[in-house]
Amino acid sequence: MNDCVTIGVPEPVFAEPWHAQVFALTVHLNETGRFAWGEWAERFSTTLKRHGLSRELDGGDDYFHAWLETLEAFLDEDGGALKDEVSPIKDAWEKAYLTTPHGAPVALDG
């Protein structure tokens, strides 16, 4: 436990901005009725188990990687965001970051 239990050290609520984003996105989709929380927990648990087979998860970044993977698969399955739709939009965001001058707001065209 020594490597995973840090006692008395204040931790940020979310270690990375994308952890907060993917968390909020999932809670929002639940609140708007896209899926029941129990259904989400069951799928997420399955992903965690699969990831945990190959290595011990520390509950940090790996936890949210599993979370994101679960949400992507869920939205691909229910048609909310198909894998084929996600890939070009992700590439477009990457290009937008790489072509936007430092300090300027990054936005997608169109």
Partner: peptide, 19 residues
Amino acid sequence: HALLPPDPALRVKALETIL
């Protein structure tokens, strides 16, 4: 250029954009 966020952050942004 703007600092490129890590791969999972871009994946989340893509989901948000589509939704």
